[in-house]
Measured scan of single mutants.
Amino acid sequence: MGFKLLSKLLVYLTASIMAIASPLAFSVDSSGEYPTVSEIPVGEVRLYQIADGVWSHIATQSFDGAVYPSNGLIVRDGDELLLIDTAWGAKNTAALLAEIEKQIGLPVTRAVSTHFHDDRVGGVDVLRAAGVATYASPSTRRLAEVEGNEIPTHSLEGLSSSGDAVRFGPVELFYPGAAHSTDNLIVYVPSASVLYGGCAIYELSRTSAGNVADADLAEWPTSIERIQQHYPEAQFVIPGHGLPGGLDLLKHTTNVVKAHTNRSVVE
């Protein structure tokens, strides 16, 4: 069995187990497998329904001669939608809004960016022009300005110390501490036991640490421990890039980060 097929099978099995364990909360999309990078042309966006009122959005972007996937989250909030992270750029984010209108038909009224990198804030200006209120932590807003990236308009308070959590509509926002970046936030959907790890969490097929220019490698494993301790009931975990899975993604990420750190020390 090929690795790609095995990865998709694991996603399907995880979703099936969740649907059985929580039949009222989960209505997993039966329309197909989780979209992969090879299936999404740059400039297009796919939506994948995880649970009743919960979707991931998947886009792709060219970077350094390669094409990478990027995940975000959409959560229903009454007759409105909360968006977590842009679709990595203005063109993708405009396509995301169009796809949401086509498939869901509810307005996106608020959006949260989970850290300051372009795959999370690139497209904020498109959201703002569409009347979406954009939010991020003060740290993310400051770092985005320093980096020359787009800056969300509103500040999220109460997320300055490791372990801080605040309720934001249908989700809980959690600051686990520094990891992929010093400002990275985690998003949890309690009604569906869905954990969105953003770039602080890796997919299972990833074996290298990737972009760690703004990471705190020493603190990252401790931050992941905080996530595990705060959300032990999480059933569906979405990484910032690639295929979702279960809580095993947290341990896998820790292993990859520690291996990278150990290699760096040896070198």
Score class of each variant (00 low, 15 high):
8 K>G: 07
87 A>R: 01
110 R>Y: 04
223 S>N: 02
16 S>C: 05
161 S>C: 06
13 L>M: 13
108 V>K: 01
111 A>P: 01
185 L>S: 03
6 L>D: 13
150 E>C: 14
224 I>S: 05
167 R>L: 04
196 Y>E: 00
142 R>I: 15
144 A>L: 11
114 T>Q: 00
215 A>S: 12
204 L>A: 05
161 S>Q: 13
216 D>H: 03
253 T>E: 01
83 L>G: 11
211 N>Y: 03
250 L>N: 03
166 V>A: 07
231 Y>F: 13
131 G>W: 08
20 I>V: 10
107 P>L: 06
35 P>K: 07
248 D>H: 08
144 A>K: 13
235 Q>L: 02
35 P>H: 14
47 L>T: 14
242 G>L: 01
26 F>L: 09
97 L>A: 03
102 K>M: 15
30 S>F: 13
58 I>E: 05
117 H>I: 00
256 V>W: 14
91 K>P: 07
36 T>I: 12
186 I>H: 00
101 E>Q: 08
244 P>D: 15
140 T>K: 02
114 T>N: 00
158 G>F: 15
139 S>W: 10
80 E>T: 12
156 L>E: 02
114 T>I: 00
175 Y>C: 02
263 R>P: 07
196 Y>V: 04
266 V>M: 12
28 V>I: 11
154 H>P: 02
230 H>E: 05
259 A>G: 09
223 S>H: 06
255 N>A: 15
236 F>A: 10
159 L>F: 07
76 R>Q: 04
4 K>S: 13
75 V>L: 12
100 I>N: 06
3 F>M: 05
30 S>M: 15
133 A>I: 14
85 D>E: 08
264 S>L: 13
19 A>G: 11
227 I>G: 08
253 T>L: 01
224 I>M: 10
142 R>W: 14
260 H>L: 04
236 F>V: 11
162 S>M: 14
52 D>Q: 03
106 L>N: 06
228 Q>L: 15
159 L>E: 02
264 S>P: 15
104 I>P: 06
168 F>T: 05
63 F>N: 04
188 Y>D: 02
205 S>P: 09
80 E>V: 11
165 A>Y: 09
132 V>P: 01
184 N>G: 11
100 I>M: 10
207 T>E: 12
10 L>I: 08
176 P>S: 11
73 L>F: 13
128 R>L: 06
10 L>G: 10
60 T>Y: 02
194 V>G: 11
137 S>C: 04
137 S>G: 07
50 I>M: 11
190 P>A: 06
119 D>N: 01
60 T>K: 12
53 G>V: 11
30 S>K: 15
45 V>Q: 14
176 P>Y: 00
257 V>H: 08
173 L>P: 02
211 N>H: 06
31 S>W: 07
18 M>T: 03
61 Q>R: 07
234 A>L: 13
165 A>V: 08
192 A>N: 14
189 V>T: 06
149 N>E: 07
181 S>I: 00
48 Y>F: 10
